[in-house]
């Protein structure tokens, strides 16, 4: 995938996000962000639906959800565990944006180097 291609695509999809720096805008919806989010959420959601569908791929989401409930249960006991889905999705998105941002930076660096 060429750099031009990425830019063209991002320009068209991100018109609704003016004030943000380019790198952040790309990180917010970039492919690495989406892939990370899918990896954190989808395999874990399958296991939630049916425990037999838990798999090694669900481990990151499982750890994130488990630690989230551990903190929540220590701070505010007596919440039902399904209530943790909202913070889990938000947290997963946060982690995904960080990964996506790192990925964009890495792409930018490799492109800089190859154009020398």
């Amino acid at each position: 995938m060429s750099r031009d291609n990425l830019l063209a695509e991002d320009d068209s999809t991100l018109r609704g996000w003016p004030g943000l720096p380019d790198s952040l805008r790309r990180a917010a919806t970039g492919p690495a962000t989406a892939a990370t989010f899918a990896l954190l959420v989808v395999p874990f959601a399958l296991g939630w639906y049916d425990a037999a569908l838990f798999s090694p791929l669900a481990l990151p989401g499982y750890l994130l959800f488990g630690i989230g409930t551990a903190i929540g249960n220590a701070v505010a006991p007596r919440f039902e565990f399904w209530l943790y889905w909202a913070p889990f999705l938000a947290g997963s998105y946060g982690v995904s944006v960080i990964v996506g941002y790192g990925y964009e930076r890495w792409i930018a660096r490799t492109d800089d180097r190859s154009s020398l």
């Binding site: 695509e9 999809t13 492919p31 989406a34 892939a35 899918a38 990896l39 989808v42 395999p43 399958l46 296991g47 037999a52 569908l53 838990f54 798999s55 090694p56 791929l57 669900a58």
Partner: peptide, 25 residues
């Protein structure tokens, strides 16, 4: 959703379902 995002999600879904069945205790 963009095609790459769809592909990534689909890939994760298929991978998870497959490994889930294979690695069932």
């Amino acid at each position: 959703m963009r095609r790459r995002t769809l592909l990534a999600t689909g890939g994760v879904l298929v991978g998870a379902a497959t490994t889930g069945v294979v690695s069932d205790p």
